[in-house]
Design a protein around this nucleic acid. Sequence first.
DNA 1: CGGTAACCGGACGCCCCCGTCCACTTGGGT
DNA 2: ACCCAAGTGGACGGGGGCGTCCGGTTACCG
Lengths: 209, 209
Amino acid sequence: MPDRLPQKLRSDAKDNRDRILDAARALFSADGLDVPMREIARRAGVGPATLYRRFPTKQTLVAEAFADQLHACRAIVDEGCADADPWRGLCLVIEKICELHARDRGFTEAFLSAFPGAPDVAGREYTLKAVAGLARRAKDAGRLRSDFVLDDLILILMANKGIHTRSTDAQVMASRRFAGLAIQALEACPHHAPLPPAARLATGAPAGA
Amino acid sequence: MPDRLPQKLRSDAKDNRDRILDAARALFSADGLDVPMREIARRAGVGPATLYRRFPTKQTLVAEAFADQLHACRAIVDEGCADADPWRGLCLVIEKICELHARDRGFTEAFLSAFPGAPDVAGREYTLKAVAGLARRAKDAGRLRSDFVLDDLILILMANKGIHTRSTDAQVMASRRFAGLAIQALEACPHHAPLPPAARLATGAPAGA
DNA sequence: CGGTAACCGGACGCCCCCGTCCACTTGGGT
DNA sequence: ACCCAAGTGGACGGGGGCGTCCGGTTACCG
């Protein structure tokens, strides 16, 4: 559905298209979203015109390039929601998503409204709703702190994005530790102090949990 | 000491210099470090040449512009260290520094080695050492979790940097909540799960706490 | 008050990115 | 084998940032 109806493309055109997507994925992952379009074209071994013809705007390219990750993301959430223990499911979601983001810098930017008002990339809203449900259950089970709010998750994801290291390995490791800390922060604890008030974040997400 | 020996500058030159620094501070705070030099010059009402003559490289300008914040930073740490209760002191440091960073986007970038190998900006090492001591005491007091590592603090600061919102107010609010969560994560708790291993961060800080 | 060195800012050349146009090439149907 | 529309990449003009040079201006000292 993010895919344009696969109009009959000539075989060579299809090839080029694929190579462009590969190049884009590689570069976005490594360097973030603001690689020059030129660079992507060069890496794919095509001219700029070809790139622009196939993907008129960078947003199109980004959306297409990250379709996989978005599905992975949704799969993770689904998996977490399926877990019998909602708290364990939520932890799983946090860990996995943080790792996913750690491995792919561009995806993080794309995911976190780097493109303001992106056309609800592959059911972001739906996914958020699912997580909200999961959180609800985790709260009812008494494992998730009661003053948790869905925006806290966004906050954590944004924060995770702020972590930068030299190598991808270090990045993943740091992200893992961060996720651990985040989970610790969210877990209900008899003597925990109340949190400062939640701030409305820029995302279109509803704030209730 | 980051200051060039204040060679006798002609009065007008001094004026311009000051106006440049003001402009730089304002722009860096609002938009981060990658404002064009041109923009700063324009805002200061001077030509590009003047700017470049006074601050040959952007790094020079940044260092000079953030001298205040760096002192504030150090003051915060000192204040925290002076607190009789080391845990309370540490919390204070986290809260205040997160807020400081939330209010000044450029400073965060400058602070977190945005310029790799910046010449130990105003005793960064010293400050880190002080915090390490504070953490040590907080641990001994049994309030800080025993598997805390100084790099965790860097991690939290980096993470805090990842948080972006539309307005400064929202930013501060979000940062406050984040700091609250971070503190929660760091507090010793009888039944908390062990954390994933700490990753060595890019900073030159020693990893032990 | 006058001279000089310090100082100024506009203008220049360089490089990189963007998005588009167009003359050539090539896939694939007949 | 032929043809032509779909497809291609090089080239172009525009815009913006960078760092530097230079002819005019101005503070300060005697």
